[in-house]
Write a protein that binds this DNA or RNA. Structure first.
Lengths: 104, 104
DNA sequence: AGCATAGTTGCAAAACAACGCAACTAATTT
DNA sequence: AAATTAGTTGCGTTGTTTTGCAACTATGCT
């Protein structure tokens, strides 16, 4: 695997490496949302939220569609949700390992 | 989805959000390796490489087994490789979108 | 014990990401 | 044209990550 491909993959992973952005993705997994709908769910300045969304758009995870003043966001790549299953697998197996260590 | 779960997922993603660590995972996908085998592939100080490996171990993506002086590393969670397929999907679909924009 | 190989850790410097504020653009309404 | 709602961007601050260097621990060999 070459350097450029590794960098490209890392960019995608990096976009998902934030609780805020994962929450956005989770929200979008249940349907289209505009930023104004997401805002109440995130206790932060709208500029910050906008930048988080921009990061997801930049790597192609999230797509958009303008409707009047509002911009509706949607998941561009559904397999992202499978990634979460794997992440949970890692988390569970790590929890198990930790439990083993503690118990003996 | 609650905050703790989001944070846990983000930690896993963060561990994968680096070209260096992705290359380590890629290498381990072809079998066990010790750090001394990985080192020639990475143009960096061994302390830096060690820390990258530690990050993958910390979240439970990589496991280890000591054999004499050497510590053999292995992928703890094979589904990580599916994650890469998805990442490639995102990259490809984004490349396509970019091409559309350029062409018209 | 002394030495070699494998890997880790403390520390400080440099690079990078997240954040809020304020000022901005864009579509729509009055 | 002015106001409103939705979203973006420049800028400075603060926190986090990556890095090399040097010193360290751990296992095995002579």
């Amino acid at each position: 695997m070459n350097t450029e491909e590794l960098k490209a993959r890392a960019r995608v992973m990096k976009a998902l490496a934030s609780p805020v952005r994962l929450k956005i993705v989770d929200e979008l997994s249940r349907g289209e949302r505009c930023m104004c709908e997401l805002q109440p769910l995130f206790p932060m300045n709208k500029s910050t939220l906008s930048r988080h969304i921009a990061e997801l758009k930049n790597v192609g995870i999230v797509g958009e569609r303008r409707e009047g003043v509002r911009i509706f966001l949607r998941l561009q790549t559904p397999c992202i949700l499978d990634v979460f299953d794997c992440a949970m697998g890692v988390i569970r197996s790590e929890a198990k390992r930790q439990a083993m260590l503690t118990k003996g």
